[in-house]
């Protein structure tokens, strides 16, 4: 057998920080870092600095919403250099099975240890809507492929690795409130069966609905077969809350939360043209404070739900919010594991 970490006696699948914390029973915190629409690495370093110390690992999005950005592996390499652990997002939209495997070999060699497997938003949403999409494989087949590269040491075609295989902690997404809702726990079961070691959910604002989903998850015993990280994110304004409620598939935003956001800005409740620049700035700050407060409460409530192993804080283009949220929810400082990785 060629040299592999599997044969070194290390019981971890990948040995990533995220895996090690979860395995030791810590309530994990992951964040999200959106690469820039440019070749500017300093943006990544700035964002990494904001997230370092408050997340155990950060998702690096892959051409999110089908808009061309720095590649997740390119940006992930910078994140590794900055001492933060990346979770490489990999979609099936832009790459076929050859390209995905090749990129993952490179990502592993560059020090990346977590992958999140996604179908990917359709290209019609992005800035190249006339592009041809790929969708050679789907997200579940992708999970299976990445797990197989690690556990069976084979490429998708079945050929065996002759050298080091890429050993990733394999993640997948779950959308508990997308339709058909009744099927969602079973789809999650399929992802786990395919090999998903951890799950990050779509943004959760409706704790009751999420509780119902998790109840089904527990009935199926899924929480014992994977680590489920619930997605949370701070609301920025009542407008954003309403937009998400009405326009983003699979998102439930209770009216009570929208009302709270409206109330937070009530002091500036007069016609738009009577508001000065300072007024608007103050109102925005008040909204954001309330958004962070709500997010902290959501994290605290989610933590009480049996079977949730952590939170995934999504504050894209508002990375500053992650620290106060993690702090407010009592999740700081993040545990540090200093055992040697074999």
């Amino acid at each position: 057998m060629a040299e592999s970490q599997a044969s070194t006696g290390n019981s971890y699948l990948a040995g990533s920080n995220l895996e090690r914390l979860l395995r030791r029973g810590h309530f994990a915190v992951t964040g999200e870092l959106g690469p820039p629409q440019s070749a500017d690495g300093t943006v990544i370093r700035q964002k990494a600095a904001l997230l370092k110390g408050c997340c155990d690992a950060v998702n690096i999005t892959d051409n999110q919403t089908a808009i061309v950005r720095m590649s997740s592996i390119g940006a992930g390499t910078i994140v590794v250099q900055e001492g933060l652990e990346p979770i490489i997002q990999m979609t099936c939209r832009d790459r076929n099975r050859l390209a995905i495997q090749a990129d993952l070999l490179g990502a592993y060699a560059l020090g990346m240890r977590n992958v999140l497997c996604l179908s990917g938003d359709h290209q019609s949403f992005g800035n190249h809507p006339t592009a041809k999409n790929v969708f050679d494989i789907d997200s579940i087949q992708l999970v299976h492929m990445v797990a197989g590269m690690r556990d069976k040491r084979i490429f998708e075609c079945g050929e065996e690795f002759k050298g080091q295989e890429p050993r990733f902690f394999v993640g997948a997404a779950a959308a508990p409130f997308a339709d058909p809702v009744a099927y969602r726990p079973y789809r999650l079961a399929k992802k786990i069966k395919a090999g998903a070691n951890f799950i990050q959910t779509q943004l959760i604002y409706d704790i009751d609905a999420f509780g119902v989903f998790m109840e089904k998850v527990r009935t199926l015993g899924l929480h014992e077969q994977t680590y489920i990280l619930a997605g949370v994110g701070p609301l920025k304004s009542p407008g954003m809350a309403r937009y998400m409620k009405n326009n983003v598939p699979g998102l439930l935003v209770p009216d009570a939360l929208i009302d709270r956001m409206v109330q937070a800005g009530a002091a500036w409740d007069k016609p738009q043209d009577e508001l000065t620049k300072e007024d608007k700035r103050a109102r925005s700050a008040a909204w954001k404070d309330e958004g962070i407060k709500i997010c902290i409460e959501l994290v605290q409530q989610i933590r009480q739900i049996e079977g949730v192993a952590g939170v995934h804080i999504m504050a894209i283009e508002w990375e500053e919010a992650v620290r106060p949220i993690a702090d407010g929810a009592g999740l700081l400082p993040r545990p540090v594991i200093d055992e040697p990785v074999a």
Partner: peptide, 20 residues
């Protein structure tokens, strides 16, 4: 729209596809 073989993506809502 994505030729998926293992069930609906997260964009399925109200019976229609995320793209339209």
């Amino acid at each position: 729209s994505k030729s998926l073989l293992n069930g609906p993506c997260g964009g399925s809502e109200g019976g229609h596809c995320e793209i339209n």
